[in-house]
Write a protein that binds this DNA or RNA. Sequence first.
DNA 1: GCGACAG
DNA 2: ATCTTGTCGC
Length: 419
Amino acid sequence: MKNNYYKFRQDIKVNFSNVCINDFSTLLKENKPFSGVVESKYGKEYYSKRTYIKGYPYGLNIFINKRQRSLYSLDFTKSNGYALEYENNDRTSFEVYDMGFLLEKITCVEGKIIEKEITEIDIIETVKEFNIKDLLEEISVKYEIEVDDIDSMLGWGLSTYKSVKYDYKFLKKQYWNYYHKTNKEMGLYKNNDFIKYYTEQNKLKDQIIKGDVLPEKIQYVAGVDVAYNEQEQIMVGAIVVLNAETLEVVEQSSHVMDITFPYIPGLFSFREVPAILEAFKKLTMQPDLIICDAQGIAHPKNVGMATHLGIELDIPTIGCAKKRLVGFYEKEKLGSNRADTQELIWNSETVGVALRTQDNIKPMFVSIGHKISLETAIEWVLKVSPKYRLPETTRQADQLVNSILKETTDYDFLDDNKV
DNA sequence: GCGACAG
DNA sequence: ATCTTGTCGC
């Protein structure tokens, strides 16, 4: 087990010199624009500390819960905020500072605000374009954190940019490119290492059966899913079998194992299939059909995860993914009602469809996996998605893996003795 | 050369 | 996939 992942988080040096303020959130809501530092503890669930300027989260955010510690910065550079709480007879005062300025002063008597001063400051300037590599360097120096370690924190720090008017998609894209570039440089993506998997895909491709080879009556439909704990390098694979008529869970099984393969678009099945196969072995019954939360033949080599799994188990499978991997469809022509479809074309072939499983809901991407026709696949996806965008099979499998992952996580960041 | 890229 | 606060609309 790798330890260095958390270590730097415990040693983080942050410029906050604030006095702890508990339950500041009510104050925050009533007195916008609020500027200052909020520190919150919700029982033993989580702990967080974050700077606000004029009601916007800004600067540093530290977050700790049982499963992880994280630190991110909304502008990556400037943050030196703190707040003071002091008592004078029956009066309680809060003084809030950031970057050396008094931003806000609030005086309360018995919990009621009797005085409020807000310093007018300009909205923080935002930088729209920058080189992400330079940025990482800058954070690394400033907070004495290794560039490699910052990487993992940025993963979701970037998503909070939308709250401070950044072009979040642009940043996310930049981050993604940076991430894969470094992985390549680190030798993680050496093509040579993966040639054998690409050739294996060629063999799998020849075995795909594209028509209906189904039992006369499909009694049991299964869903599969995998969840990850990157920190512990563990993954949980699960399979949940449902009654095809009632959609009630009939049987479920799971398997916890080490992560052995990185996520690479195109080689996704080699990451997830092993865990699912192990879970499958523990079943006492055999499902007639499996619906995967991934692509089937709508894949650069026509061997998405659903197809790979179907061939491996020799069971009919459907690929039902939330996002497109390859192929194009005519977006404007796709109707907005349940069961509306548009063909997904890739290399002049129809590899699947964009299918709405509910009215006015983003489409799912359905493709055949193995031993089934596209028409039958669409029928079944609609049948198992009576209420929600995602098939009931996927939802059940998703729930199962996540609950098991929680049970499996045995450390507790909120309890110093356990870490 | 760069962008896109299932979970 | 993974992490979560706050806001808004039906």
